[in-house]
Amino acid sequence: MIVTPTGTVSVHPVERAIELLRDRYVFPERAEAATATLRQRLADGAYDGLDDSTLAERLTADLLDVCPDAHLWVRVRDERRATARASIRRVEILDGNVGYLDVRRISGSTGGGRAVVGAMELVSRTDALILDLRHNEGGSPDGVVLWSSYFLPAEPTHLNSIHDRVTGRTRQFWSLAWLSGERYLDRPLYVLTSDQTFSGAEDLCLNLKVRGRARLVGETTRGGANLATVLALTPTLEIAVPHAYSINPITGGNWEGTGIEPDLAVPAATAFDVAYAELREREPGAQEPPGH
C-alpha cells in the first residue's frame, strides 16, 4: 500500500501487478513463480525510489526472467498509442502484373474491413501477389480471419482456436463463407517475414503455410502466440497480461517462443527482391524490381 500526500491509500504498482498476474495470466503455475519473484524483489527494495520508466523496465525484465512471453510487459502509459495507425501502408501493381501489399497491422474486421476489401480489389486482377508482413506486429484475431478468407476457398475452414484462462472458454475461428469482393485463389502468393513479424501476423502466416497456400520468404518470425489485455497499474503505468493462447487445428500447437520458419530463409532486407525475382524468373527481359 502507498499513502499519498493527501492521505489517500493506493495499491503499490508491484502489488497490483501481482494481483493481475495471479488472476489472469494464461499459465497459472508460471504466474505463481512470477509473483513470488516480484514479492521477493519488492521486499528487498529493488523497486524503491524508481521513476516510472525505470520501474517499468525493471518489472518487465524480472517478469521475463520467469515468464519468457513476448506479450508480457510493463510500460509508461502514452495516450498517443491509442491513435489509429494505417493498417495497409502500400498497395502497388508491379511490372509483370504482380500485386504488392505492405500490411503493417492486422486491424479488426469491423474497423479495418473496408481497407482490406479495398486493397484486395486493387490487386484482384494480378497474376501473383506479394504480401509483406515484415513490419507487422499483429492485431485482431477477427482481422486474421478476414485476411485468411481471401486466400482460401469459400467452404469454411477451421483456422485457429483460442483458449481463454479468464473465461475458461475456447473459441474457434473459421474462414468466412462470404466476402465483399473476389477471393484470391489459384495464383501464386508470397508472404514476406522478418524477426519482427509478430502475433496476429504470425497467425496469418501459419494459416497460409500449413495449407500450402503461400510461400513464406524471409526470416523466422518473432514467436508470440498468446493474447494479452493491457491494464492500468497506476495512472501512469500499464501492464500487458497474456490471458489466452492459440491452438492451431492442424499442428495441435502454436508458435509461442519458436516463431514460424519461412519456406525460403533469407535476410528480411532482401526478401522482397528474392520473392519478386522468383515470380518473374519465367519472363524474359524482366526489369529490375523497384526499391522496397
Rank of each mutant, 00 (worst) to 15 (best):
E121H: 10
L122I: 12
L122F: 00
V123E: 03
V123G: 02
S124P: 04
R125M: 05
R125G: 06
R125Y: 09
R125V: 04
T126V: 12
T126P: 00
T126C: 08
T126Q: 01
D127A: 09
D127F: 06
D127H: 09
L129E: 11
L129T: 10
L129N: 07
L129M: 08
L131P: 01
D132A: 05
D132P: 03
R134D: 10
H135Y: 14
N136L: 07
E137V: 13
E137N: 09
G138Y: 11
G138V: 13
G138T: 13
G138N: 08
G139P: 10
G139M: 08
P141H: 09
D142A: 13
V144S: 14
L146I: 01
W147T: 01
W147V: 11
S148W: 10
S149Q: 08
L152N: 03
L152Y: 02
P153V: 04
E155R: 15
E155W: 05
P156Y: 02
P156D: 06
T157N: 03
T157W: 01
T157L: 08
H158W: 15
H158A: 10
L159F: 05
L159E: 10
N160P: 02
I162S: 01
H163D: 05
H163I: 11
R165Y: 12
V166Q: 06
V166C: 06
V166H: 01
T167L: 15
T167P: 11
G168T: 15
R171S: 11
R171C: 05
Q172K: 03
Q172C: 02
F173C: 02
F173V: 02
F173H: 12
W174F: 12
S175I: 11
S175N: 05
A177P: 04
W178P: 00
W178M: 10
W178D: 15
L179T: 09
L179A: 15
S180R: 11
S180V: 06
E182G: 06
R183P: 06
R183N: 07
L185N: 05
L185C: 04
R187Q: 14
L189S: 05
L189E: 11
L189G: 03
V191A: 04
V191N: 01
D195V: 10
Q196S: 14
Q196T: 04
T197W: 00
G200S: 12
A201M: 09
A201Y: 06
A201I: 08
E202D: 03
E202R: 15
D203H: 15
C205A: 13
C205S: 12
C205Q: 09
N207T: 00
N207W: 03
L208C: 06
K209W: 00
V210A: 07
V210K: 04
V210T: 15
R211G: 02
R211A: 05
A214Y: 04
A214L: 02
R215M: 05
V217N: 07
G218W: 02
G218Y: 07
G224M: 13
G224C: 14
N226E: 05
N226C: 05
L227I: 12
A232G: 12
A232Y: 12
A232N: 13
T234C: 04
P235G: 10
T236Y: 01
T236S: 09
T236G: 03
E238P: 03
I239L: 13
A240E: 11
H243S: 08
H243V: 02
